Amino acid sequence: MLRYLPVIFALLISWSANSMEMSVPTAVTAAEPTQAQPVPRRGALYRVRHEGRTSYLFGTIHVGKQGFFPLEPEVTRALADSSSLVLELDTRAYEPFQQALTKYGTYPAGESITRHLTPAALAKLERALAKANISLRSVENYRPWLVANILVGTEIEKHGYHRSNGVEGYLLTAAMQQKKPVRELETADFQLSLFASLDDRQQEQYLLENLDELENGKAVRKSAGLIDAWSNADAGQIAALARELTSGDTVSATFMDRTLLRKRNPAMTAHIEAIMRTDKVAFVGIGLLHLVGSDSIPELLRRRGYDVEQMY
Rank of each mutant, 00 (worst) to 15 (best):
V308A: 03
S14A: 15
E157H: 06
F190E: 12
I275S: 07
L5R: 13
K158T: 07
P70N: 08
G236T: 13
K280Y: 10
K280L: 12
S164L: 05
L241W: 03
F69T: 07
L261S: 01
E309K: 13
T102C: 13
R221N: 11
A175N: 01
A27V: 01
R53E: 02
E32M: 15
W145F: 11
E186D: 14
L207T: 03
T269C: 10
A240K: 14
K280H: 14
L288A: 08
E51F: 09
T254M: 08
K131D: 11
A80Q: 11
Y94D: 15
M20F: 13
W15Y: 15
H159M: 07
V284L: 07
L214F: 01
Y312M: 04
D228M: 11
K280F: 09
G166D: 02
E209R: 04
R201F: 08
I286T: 04
P33I: 11
D279S: 13
M176E: 15
D228F: 09
L87V: 05
R243T: 13
L11R: 13
V308D: 00
R49S: 14
E140D: 10
F195Q: 01
R143E: 04
D81W: 05
K222D: 14
L45G: 05
G64S: 06
H159F: 09
Y170A: 05
Q202H: 06
Q35W: 13
E299A: 12
A30V: 04
I272H: 01
G169I: 02
L192A: 05
R47H: 06
E244N: 10
P144F: 01
R163D: 09
R304W: 02
E140P: 05
N141A: 15
F190V: 12
L5A: 10
L194C: 02
R183G: 04
A27Y: 03
K180T: 00
G287D: 00
Y312P: 04
I13W: 03
H162L: 13
T278Q: 15
E157C: 07
T187P: 04
A31I: 12
P119W: 02
D189S: 09
E309W: 06
A188H: 06
S16Y: 00
L245F: 03
A188F: 11
A44S: 14
D189M: 08
G43A: 06
M276T: 06
A17F: 13
M256D: 02
P70K: 08
I227W: 11
S135H: 09
D212L: 12
D212S: 13
I275F: 06
A27F: 00
M22I: 14
E168D: 11
T34W: 05
E244C: 11
S112A: 08
A31Y: 06
Y170E: 05
N141F: 13
L198D: 03
A219N: 08
L136M: 09
I134P: 00
F283T: 01
S14D: 12
D81L: 12
Y142C: 09
